[in-house]
Amino acid sequence: MMRWMIGIGVVGLLVLTYFLLPILSPFVVGFIIAYLFNPLVTRLDRHGVSRTWGTSLIFLGGALVLLVALVALIPVLIEQTVRLVRVFPQLLDIVQQRIIPWVTQTTGLELHVDQLRALVVSHGETIAKVVAGGLSNVSATGTAAFIALMNLLLIPVIAFYLLRDWPVVIARVEQMLPRHRVDSIALMARESDSMLGNFLRGQLAVMIANGVTYSIGLTLIGLETGIAIGMFAGLVSFVPYLGTIIGILLALIAMYIQADSLWPLLLVLGVFGVGQVLETVAWQPRFVGNEIGMHPVAVIFAVMAGGQLFGFFGILLALPVSAVLIVLGEHALAAYRESRYYRGKDERALPPGDGDEPVEG
C-alpha cells in the first residue's frame, strides 16, 4: 500500500511540476546558481566564515564581475551583433550577383534568387509584425513585463537563501528518506553530486575558455564581429561540435563580406582549428575530464530530447539530468547483475569479468 502511495505521489509531483513550468524558471536558475557555488561557501565556512557572510561575499563578487561585464563588454557585443545581422542582406546580394551566375555558367542550371529573397522578406515582415504586436501588448497590459522583471529579481533572492541554507535543505531531504534505504540513497546522491558538480562547473569553464579563445583569435585576424561570433560559439559549445560549426559558418560569412576575398577565410579556419585543439588537449581534460563519459551522439540526442520535451530549460538541464541518470543506471545494472533473473536459479553471483576466462584443467 505504501509503495502505491509513494508512486502516486511521485506521479502527482511530476504532473504538478509540468503545469507549473512557466513559473519555475527563477527557482531552477536559483537552484543551479546555489548548487554551483555551494562548494566555495562550504570551504569558506570551514575556514571560519559563516555561510551568511560567505554567501554575501560570493554575491558581492558576482555583482562586481557582472557590472564590469555590462560596462566593458556588453556595448561591444551589442554593436557587433547589430553589425553581424546587417551582414546577411549583403550575403544574399553576393549569392545573387556572384554565386548563382558561377553555378549557372559551370553546371548549366538556372537558379533564381528572387523567390528566396521574397520569402525571406515576407517572413521577416511577419516576424517583425509578431514582435511589434507582442511589444504593443506588453506595453498595453504590462503583465508580461512585470512577470519577467519579477523573475529576474527573484533569481538572486532564491539563490541567496538556497546557498545560505543549503546544509539545512539537504538535512531535511535526508530526514524524509526511508531509514532502511538511506545509506544506498545517500551513496547514489554523493556519486551524482560528484559527477554533476564537477561536470557543471567544468563545462561552464570550457564554454568561457572557448568563447575567449575564439574571440581573441577572430579579433587578431581582423574580423570586426569577432567578439560577438566568438562568445556565441563558446556559449553554444556545450553541445559537441555545434558551437564550432555555427561559429565557423558565421565567421566565414562575415569575413568574406568584410574582406571580399577568399584568402582571409583560411585564417578563420585556422582560428577555429587552434580552438578545437585547445579544447581537446587543454580545456576538456583540465576542467571536465571524463565526468560523464557520454558519447557525442548520445549528448546531442539528450540535448535535443530535452529541448523537445521542456523547451529552453530542457536544453540546459539535459546533460545534468543525464549525468544523474547514468549514476542511477549503473546502480540499477549492478542490482540486475546480482539478481536471480540474471544469474539463473542455481548460479552464484559472479564479479564483473568473471566466468569468461577458460578453465585450465
Rank of each mutant, 00 (worst) to 15 (best):
Y341I: 13
S215G: 05
A205L: 15
S339G: 08
L333S: 10
R43F: 11
V297Y: 06
M188V: 05
K345V: 13
Q276S: 11
L265D: 13
V239W: 06
Q175F: 03
G12I: 02
F88H: 00
L204H: 00
F312H: 03
H123E: 08
Q97S: 12
V327I: 13
I147Q: 12
S261H: 09
L73S: 07
I33F: 12
G226Q: 04
I155R: 00
L70G: 09
Y35Q: 04
I6P: 02
D346E: 14
L70C: 12
T141E: 14
G243Q: 00
I78L: 10
V168I: 12
G134A: 06
P26F: 03
R46Q: 10
V49N: 08
G222Q: 10
F59H: 01
L252W: 14
I326M: 13
L64I: 09
V281Y: 15
M255T: 11
A228L: 04
P352D: 09
R51L: 04
L111P: 02
V65R: 03
M255K: 06
T126H: 09
T106I: 01
L152V: 04
P101R: 03
Q97V: 09
T141L: 13
V281H: 11
I58H: 03
T107W: 04
L163K: 02
L187N: 12
E291P: 00
A259P: 07
R117L: 03
H112Y: 07
Q90Y: 01
T244G: 14
G273Q: 09
F88I: 04
F27R: 02
I127Q: 06
T106D: 05
V87Q: 10
S136N: 08
T213F: 07
V268F: 09
I100R: 10
S136H: 07
A132Y: 05
P320W: 00
V120E: 03
D45H: 11
N210C: 14
R51D: 13
P75G: 04
S25D: 10
G62K: 00
L109G: 01
V236S: 09
V113W: 07
P285C: 06
L64D: 06
S122G: 05
R201V: 14
N210M: 14
P167S: 05
R181L: 14
L265E: 11
T213S: 15
G61D: 10
L152C: 08
G329A: 05
P26N: 05
V268G: 02
H123M: 13
Y241M: 14
I245F: 13
L64E: 07
H123I: 09
T42Q: 13
